[in-house]
Design a protein around this nucleic acid. Structure first.
Lengths: 140, 140
DNA sequence: GACTTATTTGCAACTGAGTTGCACACTCTC
DNA sequence: GAGAGTGTGCAACTCAGTTGCAAATAAGTC
């Protein structure tokens, strides 16, 4: 069987390259959203400029979500692979101010909200911040 | 009557200074969240380091919210002045990818959500992004 | 396969928001 | 009004992320 990520890339109109497969796989396999720095650390051989450009391409083609939490943006593999992602893949995130990790609360879907006329919504970010269970345990 | 902002500052345990009053007033009077760059532009006489430090102090004392939208953080005067702000002042924001403005949708309160056991929520960010009414009109 | 054209890559240099170091100024208390 | 504690203003720094550019690679065509 051909690499599944090749299919995902071509399916979204993104040219396949070795680096892009590695980056997409890293995002896919991660249990939580990764920052550019996380990806750099994980994919030691790949320059940050390549990661930056790949992420921009992926975002433009709706392959990944960008999540704004903490001080650096994080990226998450988008599991709904039919065009836009608002529908079935939007869940709540939690950013821990102690350990700076961002958690996916997969079970918590973002509540349906209706925006005033004229606003064209393309993406939704729902991020709570505070202290995660690990860190609140530690500090007791 | 004494400057209302002096009362707000002292009420939150923040020392009153001329700069802090100006910064807090600018945030209060703005109809939408302001970035550090916005504040620098509006308060020409105040150095960005002072704005940076004031915002850090204000955040620590729950005088302002930080909103992550677009590429730079924005700050918004916090209208609920009794300690934490989750209760009655949390509304949805909309970030326009064309004009890079962030709008307050004051009428849209953030839906109540229950987090899994162990997560201590201190702040919630609900930001939709896309095209605002002004920009979608222009591009037609 | 060889030739052409469009993209991508990898490195270094750059950019810019935001922070920090430090000397000076201010304010408050005794 | 001397001394301690903060705030201020400037310049220098930091660091995530981007960009320029020449070399490398991929895709399409004969």
């Amino acid at each position: 069987m051909k690499n599944e990520f090749e299919d995902i890339l071509t399916g979204h109109g993104v040219k396949v390259t070795a680096n892009r497969i590695l980056i997409l796989r890293a995002l896919h396999d991660a249990s939580r959203p990764l920052s550019m720095a996380d990806l750099e650390a994980e994919l030691e051989t790949i320059d940050k400029s390549i990661i930056s450009r790949a992420l921009a391409t992926f975002r433009a083609h709706h392959l990944v979500h960008q999540i704004l939490s903490g001080d650096e943006a994080k990226y998450e593999f988008c599991h709904s692979h039919e065009g836009h992602c608002e529908d079935d893949d939007e869940h709540v995130h939690f950013y821990c101010e102690k350990c700076h990790r961002t958690f996916c609360l997969e079970d918590m879907k973002i509540p349906e909200v209706v925006f005033p006329q004229g606003f064209i919504v393309e993406d939704i970010n729902f991020v709570a911040s505070g202290i995660c269970p690990d860190c609140s345990k530690k500090s007791q």
